[in-house]
């Protein structure tokens, strides 16, 4: 891939930097009572929403960072701040050494953005027409364009529907076309806001493989949001969790499991229907002579549990596996909800 001028930063530099970023929105509240119509119209109640609070985040070039959090946590707001759509209420946002708001035009030449629920394709035109439009507006040299077009056609398989109207594409085809369109100008960093939303498992896997390839072979930096944690774990080495506008965790998935509890599932086959009583575990039920438990491996080593069980009964078989990352994150969100009341 042709590399655009990177004189502003050098490899290994910080690609994205948010410092003490606050973002506040104001939301009108409306009374349901008819007699409040005039108040609603002229003196409405305004509620302050602090979408981001003192966010500090740095992403190095070539990293893939998963950006996750519950609905309304501030993920899309962050992506909009980095896409030059929104300005922070306080703090600074720098990306590729530039200020996305004040240097918008040169900046957006170097980034690629996909909002999973929107499309950049021209609705009532063949896909090919949107690509040609992009070539002109982004001023992509013809030779580079042809090369990139061949590249994305090959890897994303968009050739089969290249001359179909955008409105007639399936969700998966639309997403592939949107990602291909985003890549035509060879962006250095990609912001992907739920790029796999609504896609089937195969389409999802293809998109994820493609992002991986881009990162591995071409060093493209990627920041993506998703609600599918398994997908994020497959792709990203690092996960940033955001909760109610604050960064709640920033690190790798192994550390995440360790810090928030390395939950495991244990199934023991014994010669009796009575489940062994084990300390530090939670029984999740029995099925004949099979007894199921969950436990935190960081606190209770599995050897201790097996010793306890074998002291009470004969063990015929043992199965253990880690919780899916989805379950771990769901537990974390649940804890946050409990904390916030």
């Amino acid at each position: 891939m042709h590399r655009p001028d990177r004189s502003v930063t050098s490899p290994g530099d910080i690609a994205v930097e948010l410092r003490e970023v606050d973002k506040t929105f104001y939301q009108r509240q409306r009374s349901e009572r008819f007699r409040d119509v005039l108040t609603n119209l002229f003196r409405p109640t305004i509620r302050e929403i602090r979408a981001l609070r003192g966010v500090n985040l740095a992403i190095r070039r070539g990293e893939i960072v998963a950006y996750a959090g519950p609905n309304g946590a501030g993920k899309s707001t962050t992506v909009k701040l980095l896409s030059s759509v929104l300005a922070p209420t306080a703090g600074t946002v720098r990306c590729l050494g530039m200020d996305p708001m004040t240097e918008r035009v040169p900046y957006v030449r170097r980034i690629g953005v996909v909002f999973g629920q929107r499309t950049e394709l021209w609705w009532d035109q063949p896909v090919a027409a949107s690509f040609e439009w992009k070539r002109v507006v982004w001023e992509i040299p013809r030779s580079r364009y042809d090369e990139m077009l061949a590249f994305v056609k090959d890897l994303l398989g968009i050739g089969e529907f290249f001359h179909t109207l955008a409105r007639q594409l399936s969700l998966g085809q639309k997403m592939r076309a949107d990602i291909a369109l985003m890549l035509l100008h060879e962006p250095e960093i990609l912001f992907l806001d739920e790029p796999t939303i609504g896609l089937d498992v195969l389409a999802k896997r293809n998109i994820l493989d493609f992002i991986n390839t881009l990162n591995r072979e071409r060093g493209v930096t990627v920041m993506l949001t998703s609600h599918d944690m398994d997908e994020l774990e497959q792709l990203a080495g690092r996960i940033v969790l955001i909760d109610r506008g604050r960064i709640a965790y920033d690190g790798d998935f192994v550390e995440l499991r360790r810090r928030f509890g390395d939950r495991r599932h244990l199934t023991i086959d014994t010669g009796t229907a009575d489940p062994p009583t084990l300390a530090g575990v939670r029984s999740t039920g029995s099925d004949g002579n099979r007894h199921r438990y969950t436990f935190d491996a960081a606190r209770t080593p599995i050897t201790t549990l097996l010793q306890q069980a074998s002291a009470q009964t004969v063990i015929h078989d043992v199965e253990t596996h880690r919780s899916r990352i989805d379950d771990v994150i769901a537990d974390i969100y649940q804890d946050w909800n409990t904390e916030h009341g």
Binding site: K80, S84, V85, V105, V108, V113, R118, E120, W138, H185
Partner: peptide, 10 residues
């Protein structure tokens, strides 16, 4: 309007 804002032109 966001569609226009992510295009590299004034």
């Amino acid at each position: 309007l966001d569609h226009l804002l992510v295009q590299p032109q004034p």
